[in-house]
Computed example of a mutant assay.
Amino acid sequence: MNLDSLVDRFQHKDIKAYEQLYAMYADNITGVIHTIVRDEFLAQEISQDVFLKIWDKADSYNKSKGRFFTWILNIARNAAIDELRSKSFKKNKQNLYTDNFVGILNTSEEDASPPDTSMLKSLLKDLKKKCVSVIEMLYFRGYTQKEVAEELSIPLGTVKTRNRDCIGKLRENMTVLHGR
């Protein structure tokens, strides 16, 4: 079955379509969340919340604005960053270390343990270090573009250009990965 018809069924509250989409994406979404929160149990909990949220807001997905996986990924990323910024998370003194995201690139496929990050590794494999840094800070650590510019001591315009170019490269990698 093609993804578009599966997503359409999902948007019409077809539970079987939801189950198929969950089976397709849950491990990758949990893996991305794990790179942000660095706690397996919490990542699984947030992932469950994300999948409940997409079920409730299924009608808000618009394929003309982007891919379905990207839509879920953005919801997951925001949920994980919200958790990082929450008082309860800070109260537990859990911190996101700089090398968490980059560390994914350094582990081999054989060393990878749940949650599965292989798709994320495939997407990042050809990115330059400066791209990984900008993406890590913007999307996995919750920095604003201005904060990235200050942290890396580069102009704000450079951050915006790198972000656009790096996201373009990620899209290319995703197209290759999905064979489209």
Rank of each mutant, 00 (worst) to 15 (best):
E19R: 14
Y22H: 10
I15H: 09
K160R: 12
K128E: 07
T144W: 01
M119P: 05
E110K: 14
V132Y: 03
L127N: 01
V132A: 03
G179R: 12
T70C: 06
I167G: 02
I46G: 00
N173E: 10
F101T: 08
K125C: 07
K13Y: 13
F69W: 05
K128Y: 09
K90W: 02
D99C: 10
S47K: 12
I154L: 02
H34V: 00
L52I: 12
D126K: 15
K93A: 14
S60G: 00
F41H: 10
L52N: 08
P155E: 00
N173P: 04
E45A: 14
Q44M: 02
T175S: 06
M24D: 05
T107H: 13
S133W: 03
R38E: 04
M24G: 04
A76F: 08
N173A: 15
I154G: 04
N62F: 06
E45H: 10
S86L: 08
A149W: 03
E110L: 11
N100S: 13
W71Q: 03
L84N: 13
D39H: 14
K125Y: 09
L120M: 12
N106H: 14
V132N: 01
L177D: 07
M119T: 14
N92E: 09
K90P: 03
K169N: 07
E45P: 01
Y18M: 07
L84D: 02
D99S: 05
K128L: 02
L156M: 06
N74E: 09
F51K: 05
G142M: 10
I75P: 01
H178C: 11
D56I: 13
F69C: 07
I167L: 07
D8P: 00
G103H: 10
A58K: 08
N62Q: 15
T70K: 11
V148Q: 10
N78R: 11
E147W: 00
L73M: 08
Q20C: 09
N95W: 09
K128W: 03
N95I: 13
R9I: 00
A79K: 14
T144P: 13
T158F: 04
L3K: 15
E45N: 14
V132S: 02
L21T: 09
I15R: 12
I72P: 01
L84K: 13
N106L: 15
H178P: 02
A80L: 07
K160I: 14
S122W: 01
L120I: 15
E83T: 15
N78A: 09
I135Q: 00
A43W: 01
R164I: 06
L3G: 00
Q48S: 11
K129M: 06
V7N: 02
V176E: 08
Y22L: 12
A23V: 04
D8F: 14
E150H: 03
V32K: 09
S122M: 07
E110F: 13
R141T: 07
D111L: 15
Y139T: 05
E40T: 13
P115C: 06
R180I: 15
A112Y: 04
P155I: 05
C166P: 01
Q48M: 11
M24F: 06
F69K: 11
Q48C: 11
R162M: 08
F89M: 05
Y18N: 05
N62S: 11
E151V: 10
F140V: 02
E83P: 01
M137V: 03
L73T: 13
T144D: 03
K90R: 13
G179D: 07
A76P: 04
D59T: 15
I36L: 01
V134K: 01
V176Q: 07
